[in-house]
Computed example of a mutant assay.
Amino acid sequence: MVGRDVLLDFDKPKTEPGRTVLQVENLTVKNDKNLEAVRSLSLSIKSGEILGIAGVAGNGQRELAEAIYGLRNPVQGKVVLNDKTLRHTDVAQRIKGGVAFIPQDRRALATCPSLSITENMFMKNAHTNYIPQSPFNVNISAMQKATEELISSYSISTPSTKTAAKFLSGGNLQKLVLARELSTKPCLIIAEHPTRGLDVGAMEFVYRTLLAHKERGAAVLLLAGELYEIFRLSDRVAVMYEGEIMGYTPPDPKFTEEIGFMMAGSKQGEIA
């Protein structure tokens, strides 16, 4: 399909988890219907670690990701990044603090389809300052050059940097999102269904990119619907059911039965 061998089974880089990057404490979040989607949830992720969140879709995963990133106002609880409590619904604070967000809807939420690749690539530049600028001096030529370099680094197939994002395939659009979010070397990456709808070649690229950033020392929160993806990438697996963490397991298929019980609402605690 992609014209080359694709390896989806590969060894994860062995990293020793470092300091705690993200601490979520007693978080309660409501969904769009004003019902509690996340209930008194607590978790933590260290640098050099991928925490995979498993669970049937619709059990609070999206609300959890959006609350951590500041897109949704929690009812209670707090989000702590590198020992600093983040203000609710302050996305700019999170971007400046080194938080990257790869949402599941790459067209409606992650990008502006009618804008060019360059414009999408640097829509957060006022906060990341990847290309130094001021309100009176936007360095367009530097952004154009950096976009060309990122297109090459992330293997984005496009006729031009001026091409509107809506004309990219799903895989190339996701690579654009990865390039924008990860080129600033964030300390925390929130990846919500990062391979949904992608072909196997793009899936492999996403996997290797996330693992490379884990090896660099980033903390990664991975929310995925497929257990094989959770097992391939994660260092720990947490299972969500009706907005709560039911327990933790190592990322090993031999714990599939236990994970299944937790997905159905049975609390198991932490399984070594």
Results as ranks from 00 to 15, higher is better:
Ser266Glu: 15
Leu41Asp: 13
Lys96Pro: 03
Ser116Asn: 00
Ile131Tyr: 04
Phe167Leu: 13
Gly52Glu: 12
Asn139Met: 03
Ala202Leu: 02
Gly55His: 00
Asn137His: 10
Lys267Ser: 14
Arg106Cys: 05
Tyr69Gln: 00
Leu222Val: 06
Lys46Tyr: 11
Val6Ser: 01
Leu178Gly: 03
Leu64Gly: 00
Phe255Asp: 05
Thr20Glu: 15
Arg208Gly: 00
Asn34Gln: 12
Glu148Asp: 12
Met121Ala: 03
Thr163Ile: 13
His213Lys: 04
Thr85Met: 10
Cys187Pro: 04
Lys145Thr: 14
Lys30Cys: 06
Val239Glu: 13
Gly77Pro: 09
Leu86Val: 10
Val80Ile: 15
Ser155Glu: 15
Ala54Arg: 01
Lys78Met: 09
Gln133Val: 08
Gly201Asp: 11
Glu63Leu: 01
Leu51Thr: 10
Tyr154Trp: 09
Ala126Thr: 10
Ile156Ala: 05
Ala164Cys: 11
Phe101Ala: 01
Lys46Trp: 13
Ala224Cys: 06
Ile259Phe: 07
Ala37Val: 01
Gly60Tyr: 00
Ala224Thr: 10
Val239Gln: 08
Leu233Arg: 02
Gly3Pro: 06
Val2Arg: 06
Pro113Trp: 07
Leu176Asp: 07
Leu41Ile: 05
Ile131Asn: 01
Thr256Met: 09
Glu215Val: 00
Asn31Gly: 13
Ala142Thr: 03
Cys112Ala: 12
Ser153Gly: 01
Gly171His: 03
Gln76Ser: 15
Lys254Ala: 08
Thr118Asn: 07
Ala165Phe: 02
Asn172His: 09
Phe261His: 14
Ser47Lys: 07
Cys112Val: 14
Lys30Glu: 15
Glu25Gln: 10
Gly3Glu: 06
Thr249Ile: 13
Leu227Arg: 02
Ser234Ala: 10
Val80Asn: 05
Asn139Tyr: 05
Leu86Met: 15
Asp83Pro: 00
Lys175Ile: 10
Leu27Asp: 00
Pro186Met: 04
Tyr69Glu: 03
Asp235Ile: 04
Lys124Met: 12
Gln174Ile: 13
Thr195Gln: 02
Phe261Ile: 06
Ala126Tyr: 14
Asn139Glu: 13
Lys30Val: 09
Leu223Thr: 09
Val24His: 01
Thr184Asn: 06
Gly77Leu: 08
His88Gln: 13
Glu229Ile: 14
Pro250Gly: 01
Glu119His: 05
Leu43Asp: 01
Ile271His: 03
Ser155Pro: 05
Gly243Asp: 02
Gln61Trp: 01
Arg216Met: 15
Ala179Pro: 09
Gly217Arg: 01
Ala54Ser: 14
Pro251Thr: 08
Lys12Phe: 06
Ile140Ser: 05
Gln174Met: 08
Thr85Gly: 04
Leu178Glu: 06
Leu222Glu: 04
Leu227Phe: 12
Gly197Glu: 04
Met246Asp: 11
Leu8Tyr: 06
Lys145Ile: 10
Leu8Asp: 08
Asn125Ala: 06
Ala212Phe: 09
Asp5Phe: 13
Ser157Gln: 14
Val138Leu: 14
Glu149Leu: 06
Gln76Arg: 12
Glu192Ile: 07
Val206Ile: 09
Leu178Val: 07
Arg87Glu: 15
Val2Thr: 15
Ile102Phe: 07
Lys254Phe: 08
Met1Ile: 12
Lys214Ile: 12
Asn137Cys: 08
Ala272Asp: 13
Lys14Ser: 09
Glu49Gln: 11
Phe136Gly: 00
Gly98Gln: 08
Arg39Phe: 11
Ser134Trp: 10
Val91Leu: 05
Thr147Leu: 07
Leu51Ser: 03
Thr147Pro: 11
Met123Leu: 15
Ala164Lys: 12
Val2Cys: 11
